[in-house]
């Protein structure tokens, strides 16, 4: 049923579902409070009617919310299950965070400070930090993942549109945490191949040394 939806839609669906249910409940609670305050105002209703409780009602408003929140949990789990399981054929890019820049390393050894990816392919980002904790956050793609030293993490996504999106750091990392912004640029495969080849040419001398020192898996 949900296999056709993308991760972003799954997050938005969960958000919309929980917010809508919450809004209805909040409105009911608030409306009842206001109604009771007006209807049973002391001038209009000087003698209170004593009611000590009602066990059936207590059971109802315990059990029904449990069912509701379990549905909410399920909505949240669907998207989580998607993002925790990258497809085996995902295109892998190494993301390195350090105070206060991002660096992206591609399979052929080139690197960039903006994340360029081809449209139409699942992309897997392997995350590591060279210093303190960071968090790799792309709001448009609805995810973030913490980036730590000596404790690799990963995240994957499949861009739905060609375009450029903000990448932010979401784990406080000191002085310029607020300025650790870069861009994700999604390009058609042909443009990407062109950029990739050109970069390889430009970065050849450095690529040769890093490639021997650190062979890509």
């Amino acid at each position: 049923m949900f296999s056709e939806t993308t991760y972003v839609q799954q997050v938005d669906n969960a958000m919309i579902f929980i917010t809508a249910v919450s809004a209805v409940l909040l409105i009911v609670i608030t409306a009842l409070m206001i109604y009771f305050v007006i209807r049973y105002n002391r001038k209009r209703h000087p003698i209170a009617v004593q009611i000590e409780g009602n066990t059936k009602l207590e059971i109802a408003w315990t059990v029904i919310p449990i069912i509701i929140v379990m549905v909410m949990f399920w909505y949240g789990y669907i998207g989580y299950d998607t993002i925790m399981n990258p497809p085996a054929d995902a295109y892998k890019i190494q993301v390195t965070g350090k105070m206060w820049v991002w660096e992206f390393n591609y399979p052929n050894g080139i690197k960039s400070d903006t994340l360029f990816v081809p449209y139409g392919k699942p992309i897997q980002c392997d995350l590591k930090s060279l210093d303190v904790n960071h968090s790799f956050y792309i709001p448009a793609l609805r995810f973030k993942k913490d980036v730590m030293a000596n404790r690799p993490t990963k995240v994957w996504f499949q861009p739905e549109k060609v375009g450029s999106y903000d990448i932010a750091c979401a784990e406080y990392c000191g002085l310029n945490h607020w300025n650790m912004y870069t861009k994700l640029v999604v390009m058609p495969q042909a443009d990407y191949d062109k950029w990739y080849a050109a970069e390889l040419e430009l970065q050849k001398p450095t690529v040769a040394t890093t490639a021997t020192a650190e062979p890509t898996k």
């Binding site: 991760y7 799954q10 997050v11 969960a14 958000m15 929980i18 917010t19 919450s22 929140v69 909410m72 949990f73 909505y75 949240g76 789990y77 669907i78 998207g79 989580y80 998607t82 993002i83 968090s135 956050y137 709001p139 609805r142 995810f143 973030k144 993942k145 979401a170 784990e171 406080y172």
Partner: peptide, 15 residues
């Protein structure tokens, strides 16, 4: 509750 949902939290955590 919104934050308790796993996938939504990946988006709004630390915002």
């Amino acid at each position: 509750l919104i934050q308790g949902a796993l996938s939504v939290d990946l988006h709004i955590h630390d915002t």
